[in-house]
């Protein structure tokens, strides 16, 4: 009997020691919940980069106000330095000004309304993120669908200024154009995010033109591929570039058209994101710059541009 109690005591003691040693590290294992599927966040700093839309949406019940400004050419091979200097290197002749509001209906669906100076365009847009990238890369990309309907408020005189046909019948539908994009983006690492944007651009009204290099006419429908990348220089500063390539032969090798390319920096300061960049296309919004622009990087026709965005939370507690 005595022997038994000693055994009991020792076993109790060993278990006491075992338990106290074990518990030092293992207390938390009692609560070990299965890790939930984690979604990648902050693939991009803002709703749009330079010229392109990103896979980011505005958060639910948040409102974003965005003001964009594009100045005139900083340099131009077709002009003398003196001419350029007289516009304070483009500061005095802005080529486009835009204001927009975007509202998050859900965390993945955003609607927006904007007005651009170029072509007096009013646009209504929507972005729907249908797939979110996960941290384990089981879903390696985020996919969003972007649709924008542009409506020009130009006077008929200005709108049909290039039309030479007599008694041309005007139509209200001519004022509309449509951008449909699929945005496929991925945060490859903490420092690098990339995306591609297959795009369909439709215009209800075009003035017939042809490319003098290959004789191909322009069309109402264009297929365009956009690509963008950004590198984080620090937690708050990024460097990015984006580009759109138009598959329509009319736009290729055309002396009158340059493909839109922008390169710049984003600076985030809490509620604001400042985007400072250089681009060749004078118009800011897709509905305008897909139409094409004369300016090209190869002719040094680059413009300084900035965007300031501010987010307001309309969320109720």
């Amino acid at each position: 009997m005595k022997k038994i109690s000693i055994y009991t005591l020792t076993s109790l003691l060993t278990f006491f020691q075992f338990n106290s040693v074990k518990s030092q590290d293992d207390l938390l294992s009692l609560t070990d919940a299965k890790p939930e599927k984690q979604y990648v966040f902050a693939t991009w700093k803002a709703y749009r980069l330079g010229n392109v839309q990103t896979t980011e949406t505005v958060k639910k019940n948040h409102l974003e106000y965005r003001i964009l400004h594009r100045f005139g050419n900083i340099a131009d091979n077709n002009k003398t330095l003196n001419q350029i200097a007289h516009t304070a290197f483009g500061i005095d002749n802005p080529s486009d000004i835009r204001m927009s509001l975007e509202y998050g209906i859900t965390n993945d669906i955003t609607i927006g309304l904007g007005r651009s100076r170029a072509n007096e365009l009013v646009d209504l847009s929507g972005k729907w993120r249908i797939l979110k990238q996960t941290t384990d890369f089981k879903s390696p990309v985020s996919i969003a669908i972007f649709e924008s309907v542009g409506y020009t408020t130009m006077t008929p005189d200005r709108m049909y200024s290039e039309v030479t046909i007599k008694n041309f019948s005007t139509n209200e539908a001519h004022r509309f154009n449509y951008v449909t994009q699929v945005i496929i983006g991925s945060k490859v690492s903490r420092w690098l995010s990339v995306e591609i944007l297959p795009t369909w651009f439709h215009r209800n009204f075009i003035v017939q033109k042809f490319n003098p290099n290959n004789g191909i006419d322009n069309k109402n429908d264009n297929f365009i591929l956009g690509a963008a990348a950004r590198i984080k220089l620090s937690n708050r500063v990024t460097f990015f570039a984006d580009y759109f390539y138009n598959f329509d032969k009319f736009f290729q090798n055309n002396p009158d058209y340059g493909m839109p390319l922008s390169i710049g920096f984003e600076v985030e300061t809490g509620g604001h994101v400042f985007t400072l960049f250089f681009a060749n296309n004078p118009a800011i919004v897709e509905n305008n710059f897909f139409i094409g622009s004369v300016d090209k990087w190869s002719k040094s026709q680059i413009k300084f541009s900035f965007c300031i965005s501010r987010t307001f939370s309309l969320k109720k507690e």
Binding site: V40, F41, E268, T311
Partner: peptide
């Protein structure tokens, strides 16, 4: 990442810029 803010952008910045919760 489970900290809830009134402003969800703050939440994103909190995770991305300050506590770096991906790391």
């Amino acid at each position: 990442q489970a900290f809830q803010f009134k402003n969800d952008l703050m939440k994103e910045h909190f995770n991305e810029n300050y506590v770096e919760s991906d790391k």
